[in-house]
Simulated assay, not measured.
Amino acid sequence: MARLFAATGDGIVRLDEANGSWTVEPSLEGSGAQCVAVDPRVPETVFAGLREHGVRRSEDGGRSWVDCELPEPGVFSLAVSAVDGSVYAGTEPSRLFASRDNGETWEALDALLDLASRPSWSFPPRPWTSHVRWVAPSPHEASLLLVGIELGGLMRSADGGRSWEDHRPGAQRDVHCLAWHPRVQGRAYEAGGGGAAFSVDGGETWRPADEGRDRHYTWALAVDPADPDLWYVSASTGPYAAHGRGEPQAHVYRRRGDEPWTALRGGLPEPLPAMPYVLVAAEERLFAGLSDGQLWESPDRGDTWAACRITGEGLTALHALALA
């Protein structure tokens, strides 16, 4: 049975699957949790990123938490390396930190701030600042990192963050989500404010992937763990539709190889009541988490969908989702 951890913007919720439904166990209520990451080597170890209070760590599957004392309070992204267990935290204002000891101590990877493009980094709703929206450590090489600045670009490091290559050719500058393929080395994926892109050379260069979508404001991203040519994005017509209080005008899309993107329906509400903020792909299973807390699942790679049955108190919002 599967286990998911959700960051709701208020706290962390652990969801455990049993007998066709999901039980809910909330924690860190009132903390402002924005993001969540699970150690792929030790699934009971979970990290939560808080909007104003740094990083918390749980070593018992989210039942208790300790403060990891990150030097910056505003955390927007978290990741744990599948290779060596390094923990990465991205903040606003844009800084990146790494911990090699499970969040006990932190190293500031401030070479990121030496990039020539840094003076142009600016998040439109708060133009005086920017943040590290996504951190993606390679699952194959401990020293290889991708970082997305919202809004600033897609940056790459081949030495664990000690030096950086500025925005990569062909990638979207307004980075929303990044992913690596877990089994095929060198394959990476991006969802950004102007469309989607992919890389076959370890993030050095990127190719656009937009044919077939009439919506180009892409947000969430997932890749099939068995097939590097099968991936998914959510997309809307623009930021106001995606994040406002009206109709999101959004779809979940699927792409196979060089085929155009296809909008997935098959049971999903039409129109979608909220923006798909999160996509998570497991073996033959695909989850879509909407911003209003709805959780949907497809057992057949997006052909058909059903709402996840949640027992107890449901989710009212969903910012991030991690599979344990």
Rank of each mutant, 00 (worst) to 15 (best):
L28A: 01
E69V: 06
G90L: 01
V87W: 02
S64E: 10
D39K: 08
S64A: 12
E104Y: 03
E107M: 11
G90P: 01
A48S: 11
D67S: 11
A108W: 13
V80F: 08
V55I: 11
D39W: 07
F47G: 04
A37E: 04
V87Q: 05
S94R: 00
P71T: 07
S94W: 01
A89K: 09
T105P: 03
G90D: 01
T91G: 09
L109V: 11
V75Y: 06
D84I: 00
C35K: 08
G49V: 05
V38F: 08
H53G: 13
V83D: 08
R56E: 09
P93N: 11
S99R: 07
L113C: 13
G54I: 01
E52C: 07
P40I: 03
A48V: 08
A111M: 08
R63T: 11
R51N: 13
L78P: 00
D39L: 07
S81M: 02
R56V: 00
T91L: 10
F97C: 09
W65V: 05
T45Y: 02
V66Q: 14
S99N: 03
L112H: 10
C35G: 04
A108M: 10
P40M: 02
R100Y: 12
D114V: 06
R51M: 13
P40N: 02
D101F: 10
E107N: 13
G30H: 09
A89C: 12
A89G: 10
L28E: 04
V80N: 07
V87M: 09
A89S: 11
E44F: 09
L96T: 07
G74R: 15
E72N: 13
V83S: 05
H53I: 04
A48C: 09
